[in-house]
């Protein structure tokens, strides 16, 4: 099983959010070139889970082209931290918005 989130990105549009359920999980946001600029999660306090979080993101982005992919996952905290570590390994740093939001030290992974 790949530890990276490898599903293809979709445009963050109301039509594409219809099939996203209100479950717990993690998600990534990317620009029109699929460059990831945010990693987030829908946790126990997220209203309507992934659907709610992604809807909120879509509204906040207004007309800026944004793409998304997600993974339903009950262990959303450890999966979220794993995705942060993987991003740091792949790109040498965290996405900008995560840097502003995440106050903790990120661990070091060196996946195969």
């Amino acid at each position: 099983m790949s530890i990276r989130l490898n599903k293809p990105f979709q445009d963050l549009t109301p039509e594409n959010l219809v099939s996203v359920q209100g479950q717990l999980g993690v998600y990534q946001l990317a620009d029109e070139n699929d460059n990831i600029f945010y990693i987030g999660y829908a946790g126990g306090r997220s209203l309507f889970g992934l659907h709610g979080e992604l809807t909120r993101e879509m509204q906040a982005r207004e007309s800026k082209p944004t793409r998304f992919r997600y993974e339903v996952n009950q262990q959303y905290i450890s999966r979220y931290e794993e995705l942060l570590m993987l991003h740091q390994f792949d790109y040498g740093e965290l996405p900008e918005r995560v840097k502003d939001e995440y106050p903790h030290k990120v661990g070091v992974l060196s996946p195969n």
Binding site: Q75, S78, R79, E82, M85, V108, L109, P111
Partner: peptide, 22 residues
């Protein structure tokens, strides 16, 4: 942990979400 040859390959996801194992 910065010695060459030491690798944390993955998070081992379990019932507990935090203080995860590797």
């Amino acid at each position: 942990t910065d010695m060459p040859g030491f690798h944390v390959r993955r998070v081992v996801h379990t019932l507990r979400s935090t203080k995860y194992a590797t």
